[in-house]
Design a protein around this nucleic acid. Structure first.
Lengths: 234, 234
DNA sequence: TAATAAAGTTAGGTGAGCCAAACAAATAAA
DNA sequence: TTTATTTGTTTGGCTCACCTAACTTTATTA
């Protein structure tokens, strides 16, 4: 049996490794992410190792085993399906869903999540634009970059947000940005790194920090020859 | 802050008092209902008393305070709304919902439950025919009796089930009984208390025990002059 | 390379919620 | 009314997931 806490550790480990592109996670890093103390992580990792959910040697790095990774992905899948449900069916705004989904993701029922997936018509992306793992644990990956990387004069489409804090999400809404909006880079200020963007014929000025947290796919500048999707298998 | 366990105690206390029609609950009785040991109940009741959620004197009976009752009703409301959701939207059968709803009922978000209520179009009864408290904690009560009380020759309509065990619910389905089905009492066997009932022109034989767990409203025999509904206020 | 900083571990402690076993009170039966 | 039974309480102990404080190892930098 996997507890709520263990599920959270496995989800966090998967997210950290997936987003970094490296499967090496330190205990302090994990502690920060989970908002617990490093001592607590040391203990928990010991337990997860005994259950063969992570590989770990003292003073080394944590890596998920296949079994642990599967559970982490499943929790992430549940999280994102519930977020989608809250937005699409219950009219939550996207800054309201995270807190509730953190709880819903731990409801233990395979049938529930499969039925929910069907009810939502098998969505591939959640309200923040993040990919939703399918029931096999496969994840569609977009060749996205951050808004800050797009060159002046080029256009792009917002496909996801990197941060998920309420304050950031509310800020994004205030700028008038919505998922799939087209954005044109009008100007970049060398001096203070401010960026002028055009959305719906309206020009706004945003900071570098802001732009680093907006994911886009770019029309002019293909990555790897295409902006399409690939699959990240378990 | 109210924990999952505390919520379960308050829900159980409310259900026991509501179904018995008395607000006196013993610790052993509660322990049985919650499937924990009496020692555990004694401890927990001490805590609930400190939080002013129950009234209790040593070796006496437990009664809910107004505050405790409200929480109990709210948990029951969540439970029944989620059950309705699972049946109506996710195509769960009514014997599958209880287990999952036991978890969903503890998701802490007022907004969630109000939006869910609206999404389901403010249902007054759950898939088992049990009343769903509204957002003020008011409960519609039907003047129902058990199938076993209906006289031979009389007809009635099934409005709820008393038991909620999987085996019983599956049995009910196998007999071909569905909520709101009309049932006619054909014969009662004095010797072994078996009852012949007619449903959809099909005659089945059921036991006394079975009939005691089926709630009906009766066409021929009015209770209190009517079969309509009243409101149980907080 | 030695000193310092950062990262990670261990030991001991906490509250929640459960248990078994021993005990005490209240109620029912002889 | 005395005994037996049921009901309820207390004590000490368990696991889980967290903590602080002290310590050790590894990495960095002077």
């Amino acid at each position: 049996m996997i507890s709520y806490a263990e599920e959270n550790y496995l989800k966090a480990l998967f997210r950290l490794t997936f987003e970094k592109g490296s499967d090496q996670v330190g205990t302090n890093e994990l502690a920060t992410h989970l908002m617990v103390k490093p001592a607590t992580v040391s203990e928990m990792i010991k337990k997860l190792k005994e259950k063969s959910l992570v590989d770990y040697e003292k003073y080394g790095k944590i890596t998920l085993t296949k079994k642990g990774k599967k559970i982490g992905i499943d929790v992430l899948r549940k999280n994102r399906l519930w977020e989608t449900f809250l937005c699409k069916k219950l009219d939550f705004t996207w800054d309201e869903v995270q807190e509730v989904a953190e709880h819903l993701e731990h409801i233990p029922s395979l049938k529930l999540i499969e039925k929910l997936d069907k009810f939502l018509d098998f969505p591939a992306f959640d309200p923040h634009g993040n990919p939703i793992p399918n029931h096999n644990g496969e994840i569609k990956v977009q060749f996205k970059k951050t808004l800050s990387e797009v060159e002046v004069g080029h256009s792009c489409k917002m496909v996801a947000v990197k941060e998920s804090s309420n304050s950031f999400l509310q800020y994004v809404m205030n700028v008038g940005l919505v998922l799939n909006n087209h954005i044109k880079i009008i100007r970049k200020q060398d001096y203070d790194a401010l960026i002028d963007i055009e959305v719906d014929n309206k020009i706004s000025t945003v900071s570098q920090k802001f732009a680093e947290n907006i994911f886009v796919v770019c029309n002019n500048c293909k990555v790897n020859g295409a902006c399409s999707k690939s699959i990240c298998e378990l």
